[in-house]
Design a protein around this nucleic acid. Structure first.
Lengths: 123, 123
DNA sequence: GGCTAATACCTCGCTTTCCGATGTATCTGA
DNA sequence: TCAGATACATCGGAAAGCGAGGTATTAGCC
């Protein structure tokens, strides 16, 4: 299967990588930040989030280290690795290609011209 | 589960509805048209396409009728129904919300750097 | 006539993905 | 003391997608 198709369902890692590219975060904070930025539209359930984080660490995209807060609570803070940054770029390009492909089919022109976009052939 | 999450994986119907909103088509032609418009980036496999068409017909979004070509080959031509048109609108709105949500997370506008910019912590 | 490739439909069963449910443990504020 | 938030984790079932297989016709080639 091509990567692009995989993207459709597998964009959880891309979103996580995007956040970690800004600053290191722990799992719970990642979930909350996603909800905050998308006004609860996107949401990472725990059953998805933690297994995904583990897999991403296995792949070498992120690196986790246990820390203890002042309160004494333990948490695992993840940082993005150089490979993770590379992967992020790759996935973001794939996302753009996918988005453009969808919009080529549904025939919707990118009204926000902030990214000098595809010139739709207006019929 | 909210509709928006479902969209990620379930956008096959939206793409089909979009094409049928333009003109009636049969299954094989739908698959070819998707490939053409997206330069082979998106592709409907037969194992996905036909079951999806059947389900959409069941739901009343599309309506199929058997036709015979000059050559004598039979094919089932689908048209979009009024309910299908409504559903298309609903799904396209959901797609836009989803797209905006993703881009709110991955921060595709490099102009606004939230906290001192996207500075990858090189370990 | 025999062969391949394209057109055109269909279903079965496997794999992958996702997530609800559940469990553990700590801290905070009422 | 007790509810609710924080914070981690796993398991098993459900759903989506698709490869593989099947049927049948037409077109082009030698």
């Amino acid at each position: 299967m091509s990567n692009t198709e995989q993207l459709v369902k597998g964009n959880t890692p891309m979103l996580i990588l995007s956040l970690l590219a800004e600053k290191p975060m722990h799992g719970y904070a990642i979930a909350k930040e996603i909800e905050r930025r998308t006004a609860d539209l996107l949401r990472f359930r725990e059953g998805t989030l933690y297994p995904t984080l583990h897999e991403m660490e296995q792949r070498g995209w992120i690196q986790g280290s246990w820390e203890t807060t002042d309160g004494g609570r333990e948490r695992k803070v993840y940082s993005i690795t150089p490979q993770g940054l590379q992967e992020l770029q790759r996935q973001q390009h794939a996302w753009q290609r996918f988005r453009n492909a969808v919009e080529a089919v549904i025939g919707r022109k990118p009204s926000q011209s902030s990214e000098g976009g595809i010139e739709p052939c207006t019929t």
